[in-house]
Design a protein around this nucleic acid. Structure first.
Lengths: 361, 361
DNA sequence: TTGTAAGCGTTATCAG
DNA sequence: CTGATAACGCTTACAA
């Protein structure tokens, strides 16, 4: 491991210089920063001015070493399938950084060391090096080994996505079932009586919940509903020929399944998809059957509300996730736990928002 | 600003305990870690064993305070237009974290404080608090104020995206013009003689380069080429009606422009798009004109090779970016600069890869 | 090769 | 409310 004689920012303004400039002791500057109410207003003013004029900011390493607070939260980036990456990772990260920043916290991104890295080992490293005050986990699965591990470690943590019944309930999640239930009600209000659902990989708890919410609401409303079985994802790359890269044609299983549904005896007049990408397959199936996407033909809805929705024709109705609210709730709960406050040990379920566009209106 | 009595991981194993366990001095443990060649193999072995048994890892804050090396790189997340987010942010971040991790560095994500935050202020805060050894900037514009600022500050930095001629050349970028030139050659090889290009926001240097590369190569090959003027992005949200949210229909300007092109006298038999999302608009325009997407009708290509490509029908030929190579080059150059090594003050241009799919074959 | 002493910049303790 | 002193855990100089 290469190791250099790095010495960045040596010579930056220190608390000592501020103290001299303001004519007070080092400690008073520290108090002005960390417990302003303990400093006489007039003195505080002098100190604040000196701080501003010198452009002083405390050295975070020194602060951390002394106080124990790292002012940093670790986010374990999910190891995504490159063929089906989490479509909200970027948006969620932005929201997370903003929410953390509002509380004076930074976000440190980390990943298991490739290839085939162990997330548990990555967590151990970060925690052992005392680089973060707490952890944010995402894409939590049932019986997720990461949850068991951080719980055993005793590190403060929260997860985006619910944990199992026997595990600590430090999670925030969207109401996946309520989201697809709202989709069903929306379609029912438009007069649809026979509706279909296209999901993928029902092993994923959030996908299973979307499917369940769809079926339950359809039953409640007395609609005729069919949920297609989980479909495989499009195929992987093939070796290229001459510099260019060629690929196997996308596996048409999702399209074929929807086409079969649409060509059956009681064809649905609307199909909800478990993601915006899957909705693309529905569009294709609808057209391949000689039908039109939209309220007049087959209404279609997606999930995630990615930018893709606006570029489709007709534009795709989709379920939008409250990413900023999720991030704020996660950070709030995590910091409560870090500070040892009494935070409710119960999950928080946040509502989604159905964005209606031309594909269903 | 709320401040709690946090004291995470106090009581973790310290270097002192390792030294005692191994029967050596504190210093020897430090040497074993930072300069193993200075320790007798037999002693090294004893120390290593003690480290492993106690699960010791140095406290990063203490290490940073003493040595000056933060072992952390800051990544300034671009403030994206939510309607048109950088489609590779997630993939690039993953690659960046992996590349940094391979060099023993962490990645700290930061953003200007919303709303309307100033990136320069965000940089100042991070640097003044001495939280990072260097910075990675992305989506660099011409005369980017961030570049001027970090250059003046003297902080080691690199950028994904080239800087202006008068600025430090610490960048890595893809060859945007060569990428679209390759697209043109690909189309020409398929026999296309009249080709079109659809871009967006030519203020963005990378978009301008794609357009230029397209036109130059078409001219060189004697093809008839038309590059459509920059198009506006789809419209923003409208106030919803009853709980549900409704939006203005997507502005059809891109679709309309392509349709006009396709219905003209010398209609192109292929259209290249400056992004995968724009290719969606091309698909729509082609179909609206009663034509088919593909080599038999109108061939279409995209840019970015997002997962979207595989879900289209036919699957979309697209330009793939070497994100891992970019990240590795960025980290390598940045660390060289951090360590004060003599790194070439010249930009690095990396080639893209054309992934051919059904839309053009 | 190994051990000793010092100090990085900050905050906590405790006396004034 | 302020100021001196110690300590957080580690790495760098220097002495043994």
């Amino acid at each position: 491991m290469p190791e250099g004689p790095q010495r960045p920012r040596r010579g930056a303004t220190t608390i000592e210089e501020v103290a001299r400039a303001a004519g007070v002791s080092r400690q008073t500057v520290s108090n002005a920063l960390n417990a302003p109410q303990r400093v006489r207003p007039e003195t505080l003013d002098r100190v604040t001015t000196a701080i501003r004029e010198l452009g002083y900011q405390p050295d975070q390493s020194a602060r951390s070493l002394r106080s124990g607070a790292r002012r940093t939260l670790g986010y374990l980036a999910p190891v995504d399938d490159p063929l089906d990456p989490n479509p909200l990772m970027a948006g969620f990260l932005e929201a997370l950084v903003d929410a953390a920043g509002a509380e004076g916290q930074r976000v440190l991104l980390f990943r298991p060391a490739p290839p085939a890295g162990d997330p548990v080992a990555a967590i151990d490293e970060l925690v052992a090096a005392r680089q973060v005050d707490g952890l944010v986990l995402a894409d939590v699965l049932a019986e997720d080994p990461r949850i068991a591990h951080v719980a055993r470690l005793g590190v403060p943590f929260v997860s985006f996505g619910r944990t199992g019944p026997g595990e600590p309930q430090h999670w925030v999640d969207i109401a996946n079932d309520a989201a697809t239930a709202e989709v069903v009600r929306h379609l029912a209000a438009l007069g649809h009586r026979r509706i279909g659902y296209l999901g993928v990989d029902e092993q994923l708890p959030w996908m299973a919940a979307r499917r369940a919410g769809f079926l339950a609401e359809a039953r409640r409303l007395g609609l005729s509903a069919v949920a297609l079985p989980a479909v495989a994802l499009p195929g992987a790359a093939l070796p290229g020929a001459a510099g260019e890269r060629r690929e196997a044609a996308a596996a048409p299983s999702a399209v074929a399944a929807v086409r079969a549904l649409l060509s059956g005896p009681d064809r649905p007049t609307a199909v909800a998809a478990g993601s915006d990408l899957l909705a693309l397959d529905v569009y294709e199936a609808v057209r391949a059957e000689g039908l039109a996407v939209g309220p007049g033909g087959v209404a279609v809805t997606g999930f995630h509300d990615t930018p893709l929705c606006r570029h489709l024709h007709p534009a795709l109705t989709s379920v939008r996730l409250p990413l900023r609210a999720i991030a704020t709730a996660l950070v709030g709960r995590l910091l409560g736990r870090v500070r040892g406050e009494a935070v409710p040990a119960a999950g928080l379920e946040l509502p989604t928002e159905l964005v209606v566009r031309g594909s269903s209106a």
